[in-house]
Simulated assay, not measured.
Amino acid sequence: MAEMPICRWGIVATGGISEQFVRDLLMSDWPEKKANHIIQAIGSSSLEKCKSFAATCVTPAKPAVQPALYGSYQEVYDDKNVDCVYIGTPHSFHKRNCLDAIEAGKNILCEKPFALNATEAEEVFAAAKEKGVFVMEAFWTRFYPLIKTLQRLLHEERKLGTIYRTFCDFGLDIDISSLPETSRYKDPALGAGSLLDIGIYSITWGLMTLSPETGDNAEQPDVSSTQTVIDGVDVASQVLLHFRSTGRQGICTSTTTFECMHPFARLEGSEGRILVDGSTPSSPRSFTFYPKDGGKEERYEFEKPGKGFWWEADAVAQDLQAGRKQNQTMPWAETLRVLSIMDGVRKRSGTRFPVDAW
């Protein structure tokens, strides 16, 4: 049996998502863990912010290794003790952060959405290939045991029989008009709107449940869409995925005008339906199978350590130990498939970012 891998992490940015990631990795032992994690370095826009972050997130956990604290991101990239950089900046900065880390020869786990468009992602992947480093989009939900179990039941055991449709809605109640012009929900330069922030989850649920393959072997669905746009920013998106080979359809919606109802997803097939529940589509907790013949329902519940970032971190550590440059669950081609779908949605509605070439 291979020795459990150890990954020494460099944390870039000290916002809310980085806080959740660090807290999870510093939790006490989780029985299902498949790697050991060390917070080796933390970088922020100022040393004061970095120290405050460490005092809040790291010190209470009393780790054996105290992280180096830096007042810049570049110092994290240059730290020779860091195995992999976790990038938790807003998505408009992901391309630059990734390219800087790659230039320093660092492996990368970058938050979703990986970039503002597919062109940016292609540039990062090309640089990573040339440098020979590992890069993965941090799409934590895809690594949940709940998702792995659901996909096995759908695509291997054919629990639903012939799959017909998936419905998924992600709604938040955000008064965008009241936010400052610099808000990431309002400024197109920051990737404003509901699509990249939460619509990406609804689309991903459609792909995960309707398409058994990921990456280069995955079917590219036909896509139609509409968006409600206010002041150049989408506040609601409706995306229809159609897989020609099977006729399956995904109805994927998102909005910042109303909080989504629960269950947030429904899967339909010839043998029944599955309803998925949880706080949001990004963090599912359970699903229930309802047989078409009226038989006894089957409920599947899953314990979750902390916020649920542990599984993707373990996957990265295992890939690094094995010398892989891409992850099988979240390969580069899958990141590009999702970004290309969202590019098309935005092109059709005219929600353009300054970096877009169209």
Rank of each mutant, 00 (worst) to 15 (best):
G232V: 02
G269A: 13
C260A: 15
R324K: 15
I230H: 10
V12W: 05
P90R: 11
H262P: 03
L25S: 10
G215R: 06
P284N: 01
L116C: 01
E32D: 13
P113M: 12
I230N: 07
R273K: 13
A68N: 14
S286W: 13
V82Q: 12
A322E: 12
V338P: 01
N327V: 05
G161Y: 03
A2D: 10
D319K: 04
H155W: 08
F258A: 15
D24K: 01
A128R: 02
P180S: 04
E271F: 12
D173E: 15
W358V: 06
F143P: 03
V85K: 00
F143C: 01
I251H: 14
K148P: 04
F264G: 03
I176K: 10
T288I: 15
V65Q: 13
M27G: 14
I6P: 03
Q227P: 04
G344H: 08
L154W: 01
F287L: 10
Q151T: 11
E219R: 04
G71M: 01
R142I: 08
N97V: 11
K33F: 06
T14K: 07
T255P: 01
S282R: 14
V82P: 00
A104I: 04
C168H: 01
V135G: 08
M4K: 11
I39H: 05
L153R: 09
Q328C: 08
M1S: 14
I274F: 07
Y300G: 00
H262T: 11
S183L: 02
G247H: 12
F139I: 09
L153T: 02
P31N: 07
G10E: 07
T89M: 13
L47W: 04
A357Q: 14
K62F: 13
C57I: 05
E122I: 02
I198R: 00
A317E: 06
S225N: 04
A236L: 04
G269C: 08
L210V: 00
L160D: 04
A54P: 01
R285N: 12
C98K: 06
A236I: 02
G272N: 03
M261W: 14
